[in-house]
């Protein structure tokens, strides 16, 4: 990224190849909409180009990326306050759950699908920390930097979010 900052804009392609899947996954899990998530991925990379001078080189690139992604996401949600979120989480859940497989795999897939349904019902804040820590595999310290908070606060929030998820999950299961 430092080379992009120095004017070597073509290097952005490398960063795109390396990170766009994770970024897409984050946005997708947050929004539950495939097309919108792709638009926002584009948006995040555009902001990287536009605001590349703000990248200090301290900390990891992906911390900065998720920081920008959160801003893009917040802007998007502000703009589309009335639009329905998580419209196709259901689709995603069904996509994972569908198909004729061996019973064991089928059961596992259904578990995942149910969990996703539960995830969709979490509050955005709780969903976010879980996605960042579990799907994006960010360390607590990194999440703290992305969210401008302390590592301790992140730990508490992840714990709380996981508990909430568990509760919702069990409620759906039964």
């Amino acid at each position: 990224m430092l080379r992009v900052k120095a004017g070597d804009v073509d290097r952005m392609g490398l960063l795109f190849e390396r990170h766009h899947r994770k970024l897409y996954s984050f946005l997708y899990h947050m929004l539950g909409r495939a097309d919108t998530s792709e638009d926002l991925v584009q948006n995040v990379f555009y902001r990287m180009l536009k605001y590349r001078h703000t990248y200090t080189g301290e900390g990891e690139f992906r911390t900065w990326m998720y920081h920008l992604a959160r801003n893009v996401l917040a802007d998007h949600i502000k703009k589309n306050r009335h639009a329905t979120h998580h419209a196709d989480v259901q689709d995603f859940a069904e996509k994972i759950g569908g198909g004729t497989r061996a019973d064991e795999t089928l059961q596992r897939e259904q578990e995942v699908a149910t969990l996703h349904k539960a995830l969709g019902r979490l509050s955005a804040d709780n969903r976010e920390v879980l996605i960042l820590s579990r799907f994006q595999e960010l360390k607590y310290e990194e999440i703290a930097r992305v969210m401008n908070t302390t590592e301790g606060a992140v730990k508490v929030r992840v714990h709380r979010a996981l508990n909430e998820l568990k509760t919702i999950y069990l409620r759906i299961e039964n």
């Binding site: 996954s25 994972i96 995942v112 879980l130 579990r134």
Partner: peptide, 8 residues
């Protein structure tokens, strides 16, 4: 289970 979620 969260960890086994296929990546979209």
């Amino acid at each position: 289970t969260l960890g086994t979620t296929p990546e979209p």
